[in-house]
């Protein structure tokens, strides 16, 4: 049986909020290391991978590996009933029909409890190897979100060029073109505003802006975002959560027909 208590319901809320526009239904795989999720969008060009490690929960108990097939829309509805500061407890039997969610206010005055029916979801599970990327950019998540939004007004896709000087997001559209160049900058006092580039070689890749904008819904989860690029492999957009938890998005680059 599974029983996991999250100190802040907000985390799960935001995670679900961030991915519900990418996938509809997905399995939450629960094992003793934590609750993991991997799913692809409908056209299979993007992948989301999430881990809420057991360390994020207190307490965390999972006797057997359980896959909780949940419709994210339903989960969102239930999570809306939770206050941001509520304690959230996830409970499930070993062979569950439902997942049980309990929200408790901090002072334990109010306890609300919801059951969500589970579904059987047959999903491919992809093995994602550890990759040494040619470039990894760490930047404020808000900045990334803004760049994506601004450029998506102009074009469908953005090219991300990473060099020693900095990173350039450029796009060309029907009405014209635009680009944002971020220099590498270190702000000791405000680590969230740091732009850091670690690279072994310059890279330039093109990506669909709509997908990137979609990924940016996770902005609220973390102050910084990491973009990892290598030619011919998917872009990794990673939001680090507390306690070794993370939310990762992978997006296939656009190859060939660069306008």
């Amino acid at each position: 049986m599974l029983e996991a208590r999250l100190e802040q319901a907000n985390v799960l809320k935001k995670v679900v909020e961030a991915i519900k526009d990418l996938v509809q239904d997905c399995n939450f795989d629960c094992n003793d290391s934590g609750i993991a999720l991997q799913a692809m969008d409908n056209s299979h060009v993007a992948l989301v991978s999430m881990l809420l490690s057991s360390a994020a929960f207190a307490p965390y108990r999972c006797d057997r590996n359980i896959a909780l097939g949940i419709n994210l829309g339903s989960l969102t509805k239930v999570l809306k009933a939770a206050g941001t500061e509520d304690w959230l407890t996830i409970k499930a039997e070993d062979a569950p029909d439902v997942v049980n969610l309990v929200f408790e206010t901090k002072d334990a005055d109010r306890i609300s409890e919801y059951d969500i029916k589970l579904m059987d979801i047959d999903q491919e599970h992809l093995g994602i190897p550890e990759t040494d990327y040619a470039a990894t950019i760490t930047m404020p998540s808000v900045e990334f979100q803004r760049i994506c939004r601004d450029l998506s007004a102009l074009s469908e896709s953005v090219s991300i060029e990473c060099s020693k000087e900095g990173v350039k997001f450029a796009c060309q559209g029907d009405i014209g073109s635009g680009s944002v160049f971020l220099k590498q900058i270190e702000k000791v006092d405000k680590p969230n505003e740091t732009v850091k580039i670690e690279m072994t070689e310059p890279v330039s890749l093109t990506f669909s802006l709509k997908y990137l904008v979609n990924f940016c819904k996770a902005t609220g989860l973390s102050g910084t975002v990491q973009l990892s690029l290598s030619s011919e492999v998917p872009l990794l957009v990673q939001y680090d959560l507390q306690d070794q938890s993370y939310l990762r998005f992978y997006l296939a680059p656009k190859i060939g027909d660069e306008e």
Binding site: K20, D21, L22, V23, Q24, M40, D41, N42, S43, H44, V45, A46, L47, E124, L126, E156, S208, K210, Y211, N214, K217, P234, Y250, L251, A252, P253, K254, I255, G256, D257
Partner: peptide
């Protein structure tokens, strides 16, 4: 969001698999 992603032109993008 999902509906909008359906409209995205995914030509030139390989599948994750």
């Amino acid at each position: 969001g999902i509906k909008q992603l359906k409209k995205v032109d995914t030509s030139g993008m390989k599948k994750m698999s």
